[in-house]
Simulated scan of single mutants.
Amino acid sequence: MDRTTALSYYQLFPFHDHPLWKSIIEGKFSREQVLQAEMQHYIRSEIGKIYREHSAIAAKHLDANIYELLHQTVVEECYGVNGGPSHADLIKHFLLENGVSPTDLRHAVSTPGNVAAIAIYRDIAERGPVHHMIGAGCVEHYYSKLCPRIFDAYANIYRFKPGSFETYEIHGPMDEVHGERALEILESPLAQAMANDLSLAVRDAFVATSLHYDGMFQAATQTQVYWSGK
């Protein structure tokens, strides 16, 4: 599987067209709806740290180069650069700064779409660290391009508190780097030997991401809809 083939799975669920992000970028949601959606983002990010950490540990016993690349990504996502906030910490900060109470955040539960997404993310991670990193990295490749549009909407349409939504400023360039690390691993002999299995991991990562956005949309709209990708 080459880079072009791996990234082509995005067309199954091209999330720049997902109703969640279209609604947000076009200003169709209220601020409260956005906050309800972002609570699902926080839940998924907190749980996702576990899968990233376990994948890095497993990679340490598999391949030194893969471990080093995955470890860098884990540090940036789960622990923050130079001791700064993690991805989940940044989302939590956004929510608390814009009116979500610590009690409401602590008692938030996953919507059905988010539950399904988390289950698939875990399954991919359990297949192996290469499956996890390449699947997540292909998603991050495209997410990096979406982040600036979300940042602009939060700044100029919803006018959330300045400095509170920096996760979407940081994860534009950061996730571009994460995507490139994953695609670098894709070119390795080990990954090429696992091409068929990895193609399924990439496919499933895009499915899981769409389900996660379904879950965010469900929280915002109090519906149980699922996007078909079209």
Rank of each mutant, 00 (worst) to 15 (best):
P129L: 05
P112W: 04
R44T: 11
D123W: 11
K49W: 09
L35R: 05
A136D: 12
Y79T: 04
L69D: 03
D123T: 05
L96M: 04
A116N: 02
P19N: 11
R127V: 10
R31C: 10
R52A: 13
A117E: 01
I120K: 05
V130A: 14
S23L: 03
L70T: 10
T111D: 02
S86L: 04
V130D: 08
Y67T: 00
Q36T: 05
K22D: 07
G135S: 03
E140F: 05
H132D: 01
Y142P: 00
L70C: 04
Q36W: 11
L105G: 05
V34Y: 13
V75W: 08
K28P: 04
E77D: 15
V74P: 01
L35E: 12
S45V: 07
Y142L: 04
V130N: 04
H71S: 09
S144C: 13
R31D: 10
I57W: 13
S144A: 15
I118A: 02
M133Y: 07
G137Y: 00
H54K: 15
V34R: 07
S23P: 01
A37C: 07
A119T: 07
Y67F: 15
V75T: 06
Y67R: 05
A56T: 12
V100C: 12
R52V: 06
P85S: 06
I118W: 00
W21D: 04
V139G: 00
S30D: 06
N114Y: 02
V34P: 06
S86T: 04
I47K: 14
R31I: 11
L96R: 02
I91P: 01
M133A: 07
Y51M: 11
G99L: 08
E76A: 13
D63T: 09
K60Q: 13
L62E: 12
E76N: 10
M133G: 02
H71F: 12
S55F: 14
H131Q: 08
H61Y: 13
A58S: 14
I118G: 00
L95W: 00
S23T: 07
G80S: 08
G113M: 00
R31Q: 14
L96V: 07
